[in-house]
Amino acid sequence: MHLAFYVEDIYEVERQLKQRDDIRFLCPVVREEGGPLDGLDWAYLLTPWGLVIELLRWRPGQMPYEATTAKRMVPPPWLRPGGAR
């Protein structure tokens, strides 16, 4: 099990969290290239108490998989059509 967070600037969040000595990144930021998730950025990190957190960044409405299904990843409210920030 893990908890996932959408972040707008995944590289800046990675930079800031790597300055902490209590957070351990399990991998660097990965950018999906090609395939249904082309353009998705993700990374996993581990908290001091053992919780795995996933950071995600993608552009809703611009993912290749969206052309083949009505299913969608749930974006944060401010990225939804008509969403307030």
Rank of each mutant, 00 (worst) to 15 (best):
V52A: 11
I53S: 03
R80S: 07
R15K: 15
E66M: 08
L79E: 08
P81H: 09
D21R: 12
P60W: 00
R80C: 08
Q19G: 11
I10F: 03
W58I: 10
M73D: 00
P76A: 11
F5P: 02
G50L: 11
G82V: 01
L46C: 08
E66W: 05
K71I: 10
C27V: 06
R57C: 13
F25Q: 10
L40R: 13
D41T: 08
L17I: 03
D21F: 00
E66R: 05
P76T: 02
L17M: 12
V74F: 02
R85T: 01
R15I: 03
E54D: 06
L51W: 04
D22C: 06
H2I: 03
A84K: 13
D22T: 05
Q16I: 09
I10S: 04
A84C: 06
A43K: 08
A4Y: 01
Y11S: 09
P28A: 09
L46E: 15
R59K: 15
T68W: 13
E66K: 08
D21L: 10
P28M: 10
D41Q: 13
W42T: 11
V13H: 05
F5V: 05
G83F: 02
V74W: 02
W42M: 13
R20I: 02
V52Q: 11
L37G: 08
R72I: 00
D41H: 15
G35C: 04
E8I: 00
E32P: 00
K71T: 12
L37A: 14
R24A: 15
D38G: 10
G39S: 10
G35M: 06
A43Y: 02
M63K: 03
Y65M: 04
T68D: 12
T68Y: 14
P81S: 13
M73K: 00
R85N: 04
